[in-house]
């Protein structure tokens, strides 16, 4: 009976352990092996930070990492701008003509297979005779991640009381002013959560990036992928561990931001 009350039966514990193991055991192994001193990936040779040092001396890898960070930052920023505008149009635009079509088109990248998006973008860039590199990847990632920003921001806007904007207008704000002085401060946490989400999505995308990137501008995931094809070096483990740590930090920050956003009505937590 007591077990029931606590909600933790033996079955629950087992299921939870197996589930977590299924999800995280591979990652744990990867992290552990990143500290492996041995040259052979599968043989444990004691603890070492050797492969981390190796990475920081690997010019090509560092370039790829820098490229990835730049693409992620720029595409996330563009996606946030466009995605927020889309969310505002959907949540505040009323029932304009073609609203259903607009929202469907906005959300389609969410369900579109990345291979198709990547291929169609590649065809477009080829047709436009655009030189493939930083900007093509960035644009491709913007189209990929924009809809995620829209989802996050629109749900926040939908939960926001419409009468707040009306109150602002009643007190002398024109609609634009009302949006800037009342709505925007209240959805900023959702917008920043959307940015971070877009950032991480861009950072770990391989498929679309490999279609749209050009020679000499490989992103980190592409670089890792091509290295692994020649055999896994322990250095890759170290890089992956750092990427995991980085993304974990961003995701946690994003979830904090979005929590803050949704609880703003009740709690007085400052931004």
């Amino acid at each position: 009976m007591a077990r029931r009350v606590n909600g933790i039966s033996r079955f629950n514990v087992t299921a939870l352990a197996l589930g977590l193991a299924f999800l995280y055991l591979p990652i744990v192994i990867l992290v552990i092996y990143s500290f492996n001193a041995s040259r052979l990936v599968t043989v444990w040779g004691g603890w070492s930070l050797r492969w981390y040092a190796e990475f920081f001396n690997d010019r090509a890898m560092l370039d790829a990492a820098w490229m990835s960070l730049r693409v992620a930052a720029v595409s996330a920023t563009l996606a946030t701008l466009l995605g927020t505008l889309g969310a505002v149009a959907l949540a505040r635009g009323g029932r304009f003509r073609g609203r259903a079509l607009f929202s469907g088109m906005l959300y389609s990248p969410l369900v579109m297979p990345e291979v198709i998006s990547g291929l169609s973008l590649l065809l477009l860039f080829v047709a436009l005779d655009a030189e493939r590199g930083f900007w093509t990847v960035t644009i491709a990632h913007t189209t990929l991640t924009m809809c995620f920003v829209t989802v996050v921001v629109q749900s926040r806007l939908a939960s926001l009381d419409r009468s707040l904007e009306e109150a602002a207008m009643d007190l002398g704000c024109d609609p634009v002013r009302a949006f800037l002085s009342v709505t925007l401060p209240l959805i900023i946490p959702a917008i920043s959560a959307g940015w971070m989400l877009a950032f991480t999505l861009s950072l770990d995308d391989v498929v679309i990036a490999s279609f749209t990137t050009g020679p000499g501008s490989a992103t980190l995931p592409i670089r890792i992928y091509s290295e692994v094809r020649l055999g896994v070096k322990p250095e890759i483990n170290a890089i992956c561990t750092m990427v995991i740590a980085f993304i974990a930090v961003v995701i946690v920050a994003a979830s904090f931001a979005s929590k803050l956003s949704s609880s703003q009505g009740e709690s007085a937590a400052p931004l």
């Binding site: 009381d161 009468s163 707040l164 009306e166 109150a167 602002a168 207008m169 009643d170 007190l171 002398g172 704000c173 024109d174 002013r177 009302a178 009342v182 401060p185 209240l186 703003q264 009505g265 931004l271």
Partner: peptide
């Protein structure tokens, strides 16, 4: 006359206070 230019003010049912 747009709402923000009317010499009329409204008290909303749910108060609509600006939470921030």
């Amino acid at each position: 006359v747009a709402p923000h230019q009317r010499p009329v003010n409204m008290m909303f049912q749910n108060y609509a206070l600006f939470p921030h």
